[in-house]
Design a binder for these strands. Structure first.
Length: 258
DNA sequence: ACAATATCCTGCGAGC
DNA sequence: TGCTCGCAGGATATTG
């Protein structure tokens, strides 16, 4: 479920409770997820910070990185040990000062691993291939156009491709394309200069706006195309259309998007 | 080399 | 009510 703004919100919500604490206990509730011994290098070590790359959460602990990917249904929460453990909790890390970090994941597609900081990209190849951070100043229009040129894939496909650009998923992809007035099946390289400029601006705008709203869709949802599914376009009233891209559905407005 | 698909999981709602 | 099917805010290995 979580895309860049959602991952950002998880980090904002938890990092204050994590930074400075030591990890002193491990409870693995899903054997498939990881083994308790994987956390040996972290025992009694202090958490120095939490960061994000694409949709990956990176917890720095004394020369090691606790790498977490939430995939479709993962979530993190901090809690005191006496709080009720919710249903799909897969891992609990006991922290100093009466605190726990809990990893929940209904569909069990999420990833948790511990790797040495120096070999991070070796152990997590996806990080090595990761495309530019869309909200970074380094991600320029020039750079975006360079990546689009010669790209034969559909534009929605490219936006979902983490090695093309980091952090965008199905929902924000649809919203970005809606606001850009571009249909999901357009060939990436065929976008006009005006279209690539609009798309670039909307990538930054939509993701930034969503981050400001803590990825809380309630305030933001009014102009979301998706989440209304078979509804009508909020802008022109046309019935929304649905196409398959990358084996998943994209929703768009045939009236507003070309 | 690139792009499309099949697969990993679980749970929910729709339709029979 | 109970079953099956399709689908889900993702990424990767495999196939074409």
């Amino acid at each position: 479920m979580p895309e860049l703004p959602d991952v950002e919100a998880v980090i904002k919500r938890t990092e204050g409770d994590l930074r400075g604490r030591t990890i002193d206990a491990v409870k693995v509730l899903d054997k498939k997820l990881t083994s308790p011994s994987a956390f040996n290098p972290l025992t009694d070590k202090k958490i120095s910070g939490v960061s994000r790359r694409g949709k990956f959460i990176l917890v720095s602990v004394d020369g090691h990185i606790l790498v977490i990917h939430l995939r479709m249904t993962g979530d993190l929460a901090t809690a005191s040990p006496d709080e009720k453990v919710e249903r799909h909790t897969r891992l609990i890390l006991g922290l100093s000062g009466n605190m726990e970090l809990r990893f929940m994941d209904q569909r069990r597609l999420g990833i948790v691993k511990v790797v040495p900081e120096d070999d991070l990209k070796k152990y997590v190849p996806a990080l090595d291939r990761m495309g530019p951070e869309p909200l970074s100043p380094d991600f320029t229009l020039r750079e975006f156009r360079r990546r689009l040129s010669g790209k034969k894939a559909m534009i929605k496909s490219a936006l979902l491709d983490q090695s093309f650009i980091a952090g965008i998923g199905n929902i924000y992809g649809d919203e970005i394309l809606f606001q850009s007035g571009i249909r999901p099946r357009r060939v990436a390289a065929d976008l006009t200069d005006a279209e690539s400029k609009r798309l670039y601006d909307k990538i930054k705008y939509v993701l930034r706006k969503a981050c400001e709203h803590d990825a809380d869709l309630s305030g933001f949802q009014r102009w979301f195309v998706r989440g209304r599914k078979e509804g009508r376009c909020p802008r022109c009233g046309t019935e929304l259309a649905r196409v398959r891209v990358q084996g998943r559905y994209s929703y768009y407005c045939p009236g507003c998007q070309r």
